[in-house]
Nucleic acid binder design. Structure first.
Length: 571
RNA sequence: CGGGGCGUAGCGCAGCCUGGUUAGCGCGCCUGCCUUGGGAGCAGGAGGUCGGAGGUUCGAAUCCUCUCGCCCCGACCA
């Protein structure tokens, strides 16, 4: 490809609309252009990078025994009504009516369609296991699209669905995908962690998220400094503190006028937040529930929902009025003693002795409160967010909180869809059984953005070689010089013959412009044919990632470049 | 959905508060000269219904009302 003929509209300045680095660089380097909020056109270089990722995904999915299909993007409401999601999916599902008045939607995911496909076409356990995938544009009507390709309304996703006859085989399918995902992200040249995610009703460790490590990530992940433990916030647990050995003291009520916030109460009582237990009121399916938590901790709502046996959508914080209605006490003075409603205590609270709580009386707190003696919670369990002061549940090592970008998620679905949609097969005993399913997603377009978040410098992108739009960029710095131009053209043609992907910058621009653009678009190897070629026949090969320059001769250049590219691709 | 900000040339912005000639600047683009190893220089040029609608006024980019779009924080969400 010749640069002069490609649409690569590079920009000198940062576009005002972009906030994070990948968004800025994707726009500046001419990889994407916005059509409207959250939707982008992929220009030649952007599309080339996406195709690289797609190809890696295809190869590894096929290697793992999955088969590629392509499902419709427009889906009938009737299928979603069958699975029960038409009413629960929310506004992210873009719904519309076709000319015949049929309710339809744009597919944000394809569990319904695939389940329908398989129930119509697979009858026997002999046809299992089955794993089908597609690479397709998804549409989710995001509340707030942002960060360019990171969170768009339209995005390219690989989604796979496995169907198995038994639980054991379903777990094997899951593990195959887990391995395939590790291979995929490694091949993409990403620094990532697979973390345990909350799997809701399924239980077990059958949901993993694949997180690219980057400061701009929207998710928080918890990892152990010492061992392999890694989990997302919803799932992460830690070693609870050991039970305090202090002697219980006498419960004492203290006037704390106007002191409502943890910080203020603690200052007034001259104690640390870790010596106070706060009482939060949640509304769970319209009923109030009190949650007891150490003063410096935060509720993890997913854990709370799990322990209560409800969906996290069924639970929310109560507002001030609801708190008063439920407890007869204004917020700020709530405590567990004498509370009539359901009380959930965090595990940590059970280890505390002589802590402060609200007195359930306006302007009063009590100190030296003790669980078991002064009150008894309805249940006790881990309902808080892990902090970076906590210790690893596996090895006791220090936990660290870091930011990540979710690029993949694998999930054992069980029979959620096969049961509701009546998708069954006959087992060896002629018994009808629902398929046991799994689903496995990868954000293809998001990977490109995540790779840039992880690999850039002040001059531009630095693509990992396997997913760079092309591997080599040749700069012809002597367009009007026949010798230079002939040499550049010959190297270009020879590299193409060798199967190396290459762009020749044959634009009538000054060298500085070409160097700047080359850095900006982040092609791994830059080959310069310019005045040094006239002087002593030398040609430079520069590695974008580290700036290393290899000087070679015209005769050796193609072999040298080929070696570097192949080495780069195989490392 | 709540809060905030911004819409003026392809991009980045000034002008608006305090209404008044042909609406500016930088980058980019076109032509010519010149230059050619890190976004050169000179000269000439094209390009804008100032997001849209309504209103106030002799007169609106500027003031008022409505509206559309985009961005940010939060809520929500794989």
């Amino acid at each position: 490809m010749r640069f002069s003929q490609l649409l690569i509209p590079t920009l000198k300045e940062d576009p005002a609309e972009a906030e994070i680095i990948s968004h800025k660089l994707l726009l500046r380097a001419g990889f994407i252009r916005k059509l409207t909020s959250g939707t982008y056109t992929y220009l030649p270089l952007g599309l080339a990078a996406i195709k690289k990722v797609e190809q890696i995904v295809r190869e590894e999915m096929n290697r793992a025994g999955a088969q590629e299909i392509l499902m419709p993007m427009v889906q009938p409401a009737s299928l979603w009504e069958e699975s029960g999601r038409w009413d629960v999916y929310g506004k992210e599902l873009l719904r519309f009516t076709d000319r015949n008045g049929r309710n339809s939607c744009l597919g944000p995911t394809h569990e319904e369609v695939i389940t329908d496909l398989v129930r119509m076409n697979v009858q026997s356990y002999k046809e299992l296991p089955l794993n089908l995938y597609q690479i397709q544009t998804k549409y989710r009507d995001e509340a707030r699209p942002r960060f360019g390709l990171m969170r768009g309304r339209e995005f390219i996703m690989k989604d796979a669905y496995s169907f198995d006859a038994t639980d054991k085989e379903a777990e094997q399918s899951y593990h195959k995908m887990n391995q395939a995902y590790h291979r995929i992200f490694e091949r993409c040249g990403l620094r990532f962690r697979a973390v345990e995610a909350d799997s809701g009703a399924i239980g077990g460790s059958f949901s993993h998220e694949f997180m690219v490590l980057a400061d701009t990530g929207e998710d928080t992940i918890v990892t152990c400094k010492n061992c392999q433990y890694a989990a997302n916030m919803e799932k992460a647990t830690c070693v609870p503190a050991s039970k305090s050995k202090d002697e219980p003291q006498e419960l004492t009520k203290i006037e704390t006028p106007g002191k409502r916030k943890v910080k203020v109460v603690c200052e007034f009582l001259d104690i640390e937040p870790r010596q106070l237990v706060k009482t939060l009121i949640y509304i769970v399916n319209d009923k109030p529930v009190a949650v007891l938590l150490r003063g410096d901790h935060e509720v993890e709502e997913v854990k709370l929902a799990n322990i209560l046996g409800v969906s996290d959508e069924d639970l929310r914080m109560a507002d001030d009025k609801e708190v008063y209605d439920a407890t007869g006490t204004p917020t700020g003075y709530l405590g567990p003693i004498g509370l009539e409603i359901q009380v959930v205590a965090d595990t940590e609270v059970a280890t505390m002795v002589n802590f402060a709580v609200g007195a359930n009386d306006k302007n009063y707190h009590v100190v030296n409160c003790n669980m078991g003696r002064d009150f008894t919670p309805t249940m006790t369990g881990d309902v808080r967010k892990v902090t970076d002061n906590d210790r690893c549940i596996l090895c006791g090592g220090d936990l660290v909180l870091t930011k990540g970008i979710e690029v993949g998620h694998i999930f054992k679905l069980g029979t959620k869809y096969s049961a509701s949609m009546n998708a069954t097969f006959l087992d060896a005993k002629s018994q009808e059984q629902p398929f046991i399913m799994g689903c496995y997603g990868i954000g293809v377009s998001r990977i490109v953005a995540a790779a840039i978040e992880q690999n850039f410098d002040k001059d531009g992108m630095i693509f990992p070689i396997p997913i760079a739009p092309v591997q080599v960029l040749i700069l012809n710095l002597g367009l009007k010089d026949t010798e230079i131009t002939e040499a550049a053209n010959t190297i270009y043609a020879d590299l193409l013959k060798k199967g190396i992907e290459v762009i020749l910058d044959d634009r009538d621009e000054r060298p500085g412009v070409k160097f700047k653009d080359a850095d900006l678009i982040g092609i791994p190897f830059r080959v310069t044919v310019g005045k040094n070629f006239n002087k002593d026949g030398s040609i430079e090969i520069r590695t974008r990632a580290n700036g290393d320059v290899t000087t070679t001769t015209f005769a050796d250049s193609v072999a040298e470049i080929t070696t570097m590219v192949e080495k780069g691709l195989n490392q």
